[in-house]
Design a protein around this nucleic acid. Structure first.
Length: 668
DNA sequence: GCTGCATGCGTTTTT
DNA sequence: CGCATGCAGC
């Protein structure tokens, strides 16, 4: 890759802290990649002494894939390129004891945390909503507050209730040998602060730390970063305040400024040349973001071609929008003889993908959805994951409760209540409580026998899992409980049964693929369960042979990526900007989100909006997004905006699609 | 203890 | 509209 002077300076600045203020499309990922290569090849750094951190799995994968091309897979394997959470997990996994954890600890995802809170809220008769409580607790944890401190600082009834929940929640986690996502950052920070041995070990190892999308760092992640590079480490952080879109997760765009206070010798390099987007796209994006205040003055420019006008398509309703976009993609794919993977549909919220999936399926267009955890939300997937978690960590009460009676083992709420109370009185997990002789004081007869039979089965399977051939154990477990039969009987239509079985097979397939790691060695079941918990899977297909499919993803997930042709859909008030942001009068972040979306596009950018939209089944009118009004009129063509009908637009699209169809048939 | 139906509820974004 | 939870009936 040819580097411009600023990029080159950023690559060669290796010994002291460096902040790269990198505008969208200014080649920042390239700089990180080149810099890692430079450190290894020119500066003789050991690959394992370089740690690169990203915020999403997708970004980490992307970076690894680019490094592989540059340095080869053997080198990349030794590098540490991961999300902050994965890095924290690695620290915890090497030294769980100082954090009060044991080997095989469980990672709870958000929905696990919610169900624990739901249970605690019921127990405590607490007036809070689970989601509110979770957000409170997460905020406290990210600020390193203990439940006691939170309670002491509580200045309202709500905060007091929350702090009491927090106390029990933490107790629950510890007694289940479990951590939540916040703990994956917080506990490593605590360990590094308090355990000299672990600190020495990590600080001795890290010689250069690179943080991508630095503007998304929160206080806890920043602490982790500081601790890791405290001794010998040099630091490269790359960020853009205009692309800060995670403030809801505690990210502080002003972290770009406070960095100067913590590192007085910080060098700042700006990257202002955009190598990605056409002039028009860049101009339009700049026009949108110019309404925001800026921390740093920077003017992004490009010497690429002027490019086509941006297209705004006005549709009647959601189905029409999806249909039109799918039709356009089909048409343009044939006209331009390009790949389906050159097209990307971006939206604010995951649920918006539905209509587009349907429209693409109907037209037989291959597509690929990134993120949108719907797969992991499915009951059958959660159940299976709970079984696997239990094999690795039988003290995981959340998983225990989930599957103890799935499939039916005739262990009902009554039995579980008694078992739960007993376990709590002995401050132990449900699993180990089931082994205690004293349990016979609260349970007897058939209920007792059923519980004991379940835990001894679990013990047996867990022992098998530890001994190896994890795949055989996984298969064995689901065969043993006749999980396929259970899914079939529990589904209310044959069609649904089919879907559930398909999910089951998909998960098994994933697990099979994850069984073997990059070194062709067997991964432990624990490692696989961790990865599944972090939704960190290997990419479905080889890097060498990318899937030729239209990309569907949220604006958040698109950050850091680029695509030839982009469709930003649902450009309406209450969608983008989102309803809640309008209510909270916090539009700036939504504007940045819009900016991020627009700057993903290389050659063409199409924005769509609907006149009306089905919300909760009701149809209601939609207003155009305020961001559309900021686009320079000379760079935009609007279609379908004539009165109440789109006949002209559809006629045009229809004839074009027909021409494409003819061509397709003539080739066949 | 389980199944079926009705009602009521809700949708940001990610690890 | 689609899902989850809750209640009534078996």
């Amino acid at each position: 890759m040819a580097l411009n002077p600023q990029q080159l300076a950023a690559v060669k600045h290796t010994d002291t802290p460096l902040l790269v203020l990198a505008g969208a499309g200014s080649g920042k990922t390239g700089v990180i990649t080149e810099k890692i290569a430079y450190l290894i090849e020119k500066k003789q750094y050991q690959p394992r002494s370089i740690v690169a951190v990203t915020f999403t799995n997708k970004a980490a994968q992307e970076m690894k894939s680019r490094l592989s091309k540059k340095l080869g897979k053997d080198v990349v394997r030794q590098l540490s390129v991961s999300t902050f959470h994965r890095l924290g997990l690695n620290i915890l996994r090497e030294s769980p004891e100082p954090a009060g954890l044991r080997k095989g600890f469980t990672i709870l995802d958000q929905s696990d945390a919610i169900s624990i809170l739901k249970e605690l809220i019921r127990e405590q008769n607490c007036p809070l909503e689970e989601r509110t409580a979770q957000h409170m607790i997460s905020t406290w944890k990210s600020a390193f507050l203990t439940p006691e401190q939170a309670l002491a600082a509580a200045d309202s009834d709500q905060a007091t209730s929350g702090a009491l929940l927090f106390r029990d929640y933490e107790q629950w986690l510890r007694s289940c040998n479990s951590v939540d996502f916040d703990d994956l950052i917080n506990l490593p920070v605590q360990i590094l602060k308090t355990d000299p041995q672990v600190r020495e070990q990590w600080q001795g190892r890290v010689r250069h730390l690179l943080v991508d999308e630095y503007q998304d760092t929160n206080v806890a992640q920043y602490s982790l970063m500081q601790l890791l590079m405290d001794k010998f480490g040099a630091l490269t952080v790359v960020g853009d305040d205009d692309q800060s879109i995670y403030s809801w997760r505690g990210a502080r765009p002003d972290g770009l400024i406070t960095l100067k206070d913590d590192y007085p010798n910080l060098r700042v390099i700006k990257l202002e040349q955009n190598y990605r987007s056409s002039q028009r796209i860049l101009r339009a994006a700049n026009a949108v973001i110019s309404h925001n205040p800026h921390l740093f003055e920077k003017k992004l420019w490009s010497d690429l071609a002027i490019g086509d006008e941006l297209c705004i398509s006005v549709c009647r309703h959601g189905l029409d929008e999806a249909d039109w976009v799918a039709g356009q993609i089909l048409m343009r794919q044939y006209q331009k003889k390009c790949n389906f993977s050159d097209f990307t549909i971006l939206y604010r919220s995951n649920f918006q993908s539905r209509h587009f999936e349907k429209a693409l399926r109907e037209k037989n267009i291959p597509y690929q959805i990134t993120g949108g955890s719907s797969f992991f939300d499915k009951a059958e997937v959660k159940d299976m994951l709970a079984y696997l978690k239990l094999l690795v960590n039988p003290d995981d009460d959340t998983a225990f409760i989930r599957v103890v009676n799935t499939p039916r083992r005739e262990i009902g709420p009554n039995t579980m209540m008694k078992l739960g109370e007993y376990a709590r009185s002995r401050s132990t997990s449900l699993f180990s409580a089931s082994h205690e002789m004293g349990l016979e004081t609260v349970l007897s007869g058939k209920p007792l026998a059923r519980v004991q039979s379940f835990v001894s089965w679990l013990t047996l399977q867990g022992d098998n899992a530890e001994r190896g051939d994890a795949m055989a154990v996984v298969q064995g477990v689901f065969d043993d409980i006749h999980y396929r039969d259970w899914l079939e009987t529990t589904a209310d239509t044959p069609k649904q049964a089919e879907k559930m079985l398909a999910s089951m097979d998909e998960l098994l397939e994933w697990i099979g693929r994850m069984m073997v790691d990059e070194d062709q060695k067997d991964r432990s079941l624990a490692e696989i369960v961790n990865r599944l918990s972090l939704h960190d899977m290997l990419s479905r297909q080889d890097d060498d042979k990318p899937l030729n499919a239209v990309n569907l993803l949220t604006l958040h997930a698109a950050k850091g990526l680029e695509f030839p042709h982009v469709y930003m859909v649902g450009m309406e008030e209450e969608m983008l900007p989102h309803k809640n942001s309008i209510e909270d009068e916090d539009i700036e972040e939504e504007r940045r989100l819009c900016y991020v979306g627009m700057t993903r596009a290389r050659y063409s950018l199409t924005l769509t909006r609907c006149r009306s939209r089905q919300r909760y089944g009701e149809s209601s009118l939609s207003e155009p997004s305020r961001f559309l009004a900021d686009l320079p009129p000379e760079d935009v063509v609007t279609i379908g905006d004539v009165g109440e009908n789109n006949e002209e637009r559809d006629r045009q699209a229809g004839t074009d699609a027909l021409a494409s169809l003819r061509e397709m048939l003539s080739r066949a």
